[in-house]
Design a protein around this nucleic acid. Structure first.
Lengths: 344, 344
DNA sequence: ACTCTTCACTGAACCGGTTAAGGGAGTGCG
DNA sequence: CGCACTCCCTTAACCGGTTCAGTGAAGAGT
C-alpha cells in the first residue's frame, strides 16, 4: 500500500493556528490539567476549523493506550461464513466497544497455529490492546501464549479449559442436563444429541454432561454424534439417526446449534416424519432462525448479544488492570416451542 | 487502556544483537536491496532469537503503508446479528486480506452519520489504509466524504449510486428481470416481491426492475413490499400477501434475501399452503440455509464469498494506485430447487 | 598510482503524537 | 524588596520504525 494523496493536518498545524505549542494541544485533547479555559477553547476551535483529530497511530506509538480489541476466529479454508452465533456475539461485543470508541480487529484464521501467530503479531506490533479468545480446546496453546506475552485477554470458555485466564463462560453442563431432563420429563426414553466439533472444549463438556444425564435417568437409548456445526453435517447426522427401525431410533434429538436443528427439521420432513409427533427436536443458540421454521424450534436460548457485551466489558476491566473477574453468564434456559412434545 | 507489563523487544535490540544499525534491520525486513546475504541472514537470525517482529504502528507512523482495511456496517441499535450475506462477504474479503497479511477493522454503526464519522476518524487517524463501503443509498454522503478525504475505497453498489467511486456491483436489475421471467415462464401471472429496506439503493434498483419486468410481461398482478430484511418482517409480509382470496393472491413470491424466504416458507406451511403447489417461493442470496429447508429453496444464487474477495482485490489495486477498475461481478443465476413450480 | 564505480552499511532526520522537566509571569507573605 | 508558590505554557526527549544522504572499502578502468 502506498502513500496518500491527502495533505494531512497534524497536531503541529493545530498548534500553529491556535498559537500554542504541540504539547498544549496534546494536553487539551487529553483533558489534562494545566491549561486555562481560554486556551483550551482556542485549541478546540482551531482543531475544529482544521478538521483535525489526533492520529491514533501516533498516540499508540507514543505509549498510551491501544483502542483496538482483537478477535480471531478459526474457520476452515473458504468458510461459508460464520454461524449466527458469532454474528450476535460480535454485535454484542461491538455495542460495548462503541461506548469506549474502540474498534474490533477481526481475523478469520484456518487453524490454531495461525491464530497464535496472529495474536502474537497483533500484540507485539501494538495493534491491539487486548483480545477476546474463543473456541477453546483441551490444552489450548493460547493459555501459554497469553501468559508469555502478558497480553490482556478474556477467554470465552469454561475455566477448566482456559487455565488461569480471565474467562466468561456458559454453564453448558447444566444446560445439557436440563435439556435432557426436559425431554425425559416429556416421556422420551431414547434421546440423541448431534454435537459440534469434537475438538472443541465445550463440545466435550456437553458430551460428558449428556452421558451423565442419560445414565442418571437410565434412558433406554442415548446417541451422540460429532459434526462440524454445518447444516450439511447436521442433516447427515439426523438422517443416519432416523433411518433405524421406529422402535430403535431416537424420539428426540438435541442439536448443538440452530443451523443443524433447522437442517434436522427438514430432514425429518423429507423422511415423512412429523415433528414433534414422530420426533422432537431441540435447538441450541436461539437465533431468529428458530422462530422462522414450521414448526418453530424449541431451543436452549441464551442472550448471545448480552454475552458478547459482557465479555467486552470484562476485557476492558482486565485491560485497565481491574480485578480479573472470571464469571459465568446466565445458563441457557429452555424455550419450548412447537418442535418438542411427548413421544407418540 | 494502560501500559503493558511486557518488556518489549524493538528494532534496536535486534540491530544490536546482529551488530548492525537500525536501518539495516529495516532494509532486511522490507526485502529491500543493499544488504549482503550474510548480513541479512544474521539479522533474521537475531530477530528470530529475540522473537521480534516489526511494530505495525511504528511502521505506519513512519509513513509507509497501512495494512488495515475498514468496514463499517449500518445496523439498527442492538442488532440481532448480521445476515448470512455479510458473513460470507466478510469471509471472502478476509481470504484476500490474509494473503496480504492485512486485517479487517470492523465496526457496526447505527446510522450513516456515524459511519461517515467513523470512516473519517479511521482515515485521519491512519488507522486504515482504505475502506470497503457497503449499502449505498441515493445521494450517499460517503461519496463526497471519500472525495474530500482522498481515501482509497471500493464501493459495493451500482455506479448510479456510488458516483465516481471505484465500485464493484451486482447487476440486480438483470437478475430481478430474470427471476420474474422465470416465474412467468412457469406460468405465474400474479407475482409478488418482498423487498429489502426501502432506503437502500439496490432495493430501489430491484423495485424499478421488477415493475418494468412486470409491465413488459403484462402480469395480471404484481405486488412489492418493503421490509427491513429481518425474518419477522418477511413473515409478516408473506402473511399479508397470502391472506387474500385464492384468486387474488400471488402464486409466486420473490424475496430479497434468504432469511425472509425461509420465513415465508414457514408462513405458507402455517397457513396450510403447499410449496410449490399453492405458491412458489424464490430466494435471493443463496446461503446454506436455502438447502436446509423442506422443500429446498430455489434461489438467485451468487458467489458472495467470491464477491467479497473481488472487492478486496479491487481495493488493494486502488490503494496501490492501480487503475480504478470498476466492474460488475457475475449476475446471480437462478438455481431452481424445490420451492418453485408451475401454479396449480 | 590515481580516479571512478559499486556495494554494503551507518547516521540522523522524520512520522505525529505524549510527557516530564523547566521557565516566566503573577500573587502572597514576611 | 526578596522569596516562595502557583499557574500556564514551552521545550525537548522519546515511542519504534523508515528513508535517504553520505561514508568507507573493495574492485575496475586507464
Amino acid at each position: 500500500m502506498t502513500a496518500t494523496p491527502t495533505p494531512r493536518v497534524t497536531i503541529k498545524d493545530v498548534a500553529a493556528r491556535a498559537g500554542v505549542s504541540k504539547g498544549a494541544v496534546s494536553l487539551a485533547f487529553n483533558h489534562k490539567p494545566g491549561l486555562s479555559e481560554a486556551t483550551r477553547d482556542r485549541i478546540f476551535l482551531a482543531a475544529r476549523e482544521l478538521g483535525w483529530s489526533p492520529s491514533l497511530t501516533a498516540r499508540t506509538l507514543a505509549g498510551s493506550r491501544v483502542d483496538v480489541v482483537g478477535l480471531a476466529v478459526c474457520r476452515p479454508a473458504r468458510a461459508l461464513g460464520l454461524e449466527p452465533w458469532y454474528m450476535e456475539f460480535v454485535s454484542g461485543v461491538q455495542s460495548v466497544l462503541t461506548e469506549h470508541s474502540s474498534s474490533l480487529l477481526l481475523r478469520l484464521v484456518r487453524n490454531m497455529d495461525e491464530e497464535v501467530a496472529v495474536q502474537e503479531a497483533w500484540w507485539r506490533g501494538r495493534q491491539t490492546g487486548g483480545s477476546i479468545l474463543v473456541d477453546f480446546r483441551a490444552d489450548d496453546p493460547r493459555v501459554a501464549m497469553t501468559e508469555r506475552l502478558g497480553m490482556p485477554v478474556v477467554a470465552v470458555g469454561h475455566p477448566s479449559l482456559t487455565g488461569g485466564l480471565t474467562s466468561v463462560w456458559t454453564d453448558d453442563a447444566t444446560a445439557v442436563t436440563e435439556a435432557v431432563r426436559y425431554l425425559a420429563a416429556l416421556g422420551h426414553r431414547r434421546i440423541a444429541r448431534v454435537g459440534g466439533a469434537a475438538d472443541l472444549g465445550h463440545t466435550s463438556i456437553r458430551t460428558a454432561a449428556f452421558d451423565e444425564a442419560a445414565g442418571a435417568l437410565a434412558l433406554a437409548g442415548a446417541w451422540q454424534v460429532a459434526t462440524d456445526f454445518s447444516g450439511e453435517a447436521g442433516a447427515r447426522a439426523t438422517r443416519s439417526l432416523l433411518t433405524a427401525a421406529p422402535a430403535d431410533r431416537p424420539t428426540a434429538i438435541v442439536y448443538d446449534n440452530d443451523i443443524m436443528a433447522v437442517a434436522g427439521l427438514s430432514v425429518a420432513a423429507e423422511m415423512g416424519l412429523r415433528v414433534p409427533e414422530d420426533v422432537s427436536l431441540l435447538a441450541w443458540d436461539d437465533s431468529q432462525l428458530c422462530r422462522l421454521t414450521h414448526p418453530t424450534l424449541s431451543a436452549m436460548s441464551h442472550d448471545v448479544h448480552g454475552f458478547g457485551a459482557d465479555v467486552a466489558r470484562t476485557l476492558f476491566s482486565v485491560i485497565t488492570g481491574g480485578e480479573g473477574g472470571s464469571h459465568p453468564v446466565p445458563t441457557p434456559v429452555l424455550t419450548p416451542r412447537g418442535s418438542t412434545a411427548p413421544p407418540r
